Simulated assay, not measured.
Amino acid sequence: MGSLEVQAVYISGNLTGPFTAYLENPTPDFAWTQAFKYPKPDYLSSSRKRLIPQIIAKGSILKQWNKKQVVALQTSFYHTLPALPEVDKSESDFAFFLYDLVPDQKTQVLSLQLQRIVYTTFASALEQIAQFEAGPISQFTAILQKKLDAKRAGAPDLDHLDNTVAE
């Protein structure tokens, strides 16, 4: 017995901006993905705000009970996480099941298929995923200064602190 956590990727943006832009220029070759605030995967929020708390809350209990934990993710989401040390299945108490939607050319249907299983340990997965890479403080302060200068010049505040940290 154990647990299975399924974590989808959140999106940032919405279709209001692209739809408004389309209404202003309704052409057949309209570039939806280039429009303002077109939805895109928000891997940082998905991992830091949702996945890590779930792993900590459920995983620490399961670890005490000597039970295993599995997290099912889209392969592209997994690749945004820090590299995890892999162990043999027999040594593992934690695993990532990596899935993708795979098109069937014959039927023109997408099917969810398991692509790979990454076996690791709870302790090493948590340590790697929860670790924040600080980077040089000079780079961080330069970004903040740039944003402050833009704000003083009257530029709209379109970015959030999450974007500042991710830059």
Score class of each variant (00 low, 15 high):
Thr80Glu: 07
Gln105Met: 10
Phe140Pro: 00
Val109Tyr: 09
Leu158Trp: 12
Tyr43Gln: 00
Ala130Ile: 01
Leu161Val: 07
Tyr38Arg: 07
Ala83His: 15
Leu158Phe: 13
Ser60Phe: 07
Ser76Glu: 15
Ser3Ile: 14
Asp162Asn: 09
Asn66Gln: 14
Ile11Asn: 11
Ala134Asp: 11
Ala150Ile: 01
Leu101Gly: 12
Lys89Asp: 01
Gln145Ala: 09
Leu101Lys: 15
His160Thr: 12
Asn163Thr: 12
Gln108Phe: 12
Arg50Lys: 14
Ser111Cys: 06
Ser90Lys: 06
Ala155Phe: 12
Met1Pro: 11
Pro136His: 15
Gln34Arg: 11
Gln69Ser: 05
Leu148Asn: 08
Thr20Asn: 11
Phe96Ser: 00
Ala153Phe: 04
Ala8Ser: 13
Asp104Met: 08
Arg50Gln: 11
Tyr38Gln: 06
Pro103Lys: 07
Pro156Leu: 05
Val70Arg: 11
Pro28Thr: 06
Leu84Thr: 04
Gln115Ile: 05
Ala57Val: 06
Gly13Ile: 05
Phe97Tyr: 11
Ser90Phe: 04
Phe132Thr: 07
Gly135Pro: 02
Thr80Tyr: 04
Leu81Asn: 04
Pro41Phe: 00
Gln113Asp: 08
Val109Asn: 12
Gln128Trp: 03
Gln115Asn: 03
His160Ile: 09
Phe96Glu: 04
Thr75Leu: 10
Leu15Gly: 09
Tyr10Cys: 09
Ile11Lys: 11
Arg152Leu: 15
Leu98Met: 01
Asn14His: 11
Lys49Met: 08
Gly154Pro: 00
Ile61Cys: 08
Thr141Gly: 01
Ile55Tyr: 00
